[in-house]
Structure formats: C-alpha cells, structure tokens
Design a protein around this nucleic acid. Sequence first.
DNA 1: GTGCAATATACTTGATAGCGTATAATCTCA
DNA 2: TGAGATTATACGCTATCAAGTATATTGCAC
Lengths: 84, 84
Amino acid sequence: MHQFARTPKQLGAILRRERRKAGNTQEELGGRIKHRQATISKVESGEPGTRVDTLLDILAALNLELVIRPRTKGTPEEIEALFR
Amino acid sequence: MHQFARTPKQLGAILRRERRKAGNTQEELGGRIKHRQATISKVESGEPGTRVDTLLDILAALNLELVIRPRTKGTPEEIEALFR
DNA sequence: GTGCAATATACTTGATAGCGTATAATCTCA
DNA sequence: TGAGATTATACGCTATCAAGTATATTGCAC
C-alpha cells in the first residue's frame, strides 16, 4: 500500500490515518518524540510550513519512512490524455 | 529503485542526485519554483529545518513525489551504506 | 594553472514554527 | 443527552527559515 502526497494536506491526511491505525492519540505520539499535541494537530491539518525534521520525527514514531519516486500516474497532462 | 530517507541528510542526497540526473543546476531549479539557489543548496546539504512546503516545491520541479510506507528492515549500518 | 560555471556561505530582515500553558471545540459512547 | 476523551486554537516567546543581495569557495575544462 503506497500512499503518496504532493501537498501538505495530503501528507497530513496520511499521517492521521496511520496514527489512528497504530492506535495512538496525538498526545501519545507527540510525547514519544518530544513534540506537543498541538504540533501534531497542525501537521495533520496540513499546515504548509511544517518542518521536515518534525515530519521525520513523526514518521519515525509511526515506524514509517519517506520514499521519493518519479511521478508516474496523475500528472495533469497524463490525466488529460486519458480523456482524449 | 525506491530511494527512501529517514534523515534530512539522506533526503538532501536524494534530491541532489535527482537534480543532477535531470540535468539542472541549483539556479535553474530554484528559478522554476521561486526559491533561491542558496535555499536549494541548504536543502541538499541536509539542513534539518527545511520546510515541508519547500521540499514539496522541489519535488514538483523534479517531477517526483513523496511516498509514505512502513519502514523496511535493515540495520542502521546497512542503511547508512546506501547513502555512501 | 587560468577562467568560468556551479555551489556554499554571509548579513540583515520579515514571517512563522514550535514551545509552554491553557482553553475551546468536537468526537465518542454509555 | 451528558461526561470524558480527543483534537483544535489562543497568547506570548524564542529560534530559525527563506528572502534579498552579495561574496567566497569549489569543481571542471582547457
């Protein structure tokens, strides 16, 4: 199951889903990585200014990692091509 | 080949590799997304405080995307070796 | 080794993340 | 519906990003 994100909002949605899947509250998660519940909340809400190291902290706490890959499906051009 | 990152440094290394593969200079890349050459430099160097939206801008400019997945197995040493 | 392109670093400035602390809003079930 | 749990938001504060501008340093051809 590969979830990709191109915007902070999409990223936040993934994190929230994964956190819940892991059965954690924002409070628990934040406590493990020395970030406040409020910070987790903002990240999950898709605040664009989140710092990469904060993101990586959260991923680590959820035992996730970040993968970089080429944009395959779903560029505007390709989507448009599907309907020509 | 999926390149994954757990630290800002690893992330920067991936971005640099991909930028060069795409034949861009930091100046060109930054120009396309309204970020300075100096900013690209810092991100590629693994400055930990980089903002997520800046990262996403760079990924977009390189036609890459970010994927979240469960952490793969491997010792820290093995993982480090991937970035040497 | 010279010269140019590419990358790294420096200084000031405005904007904002994340902190501590706290409260408000919302969700979840009995 | 109401209580408790969870999440969102507020305020003052410090740290720092990224901008503008500029310069220093490195890398690579020739």
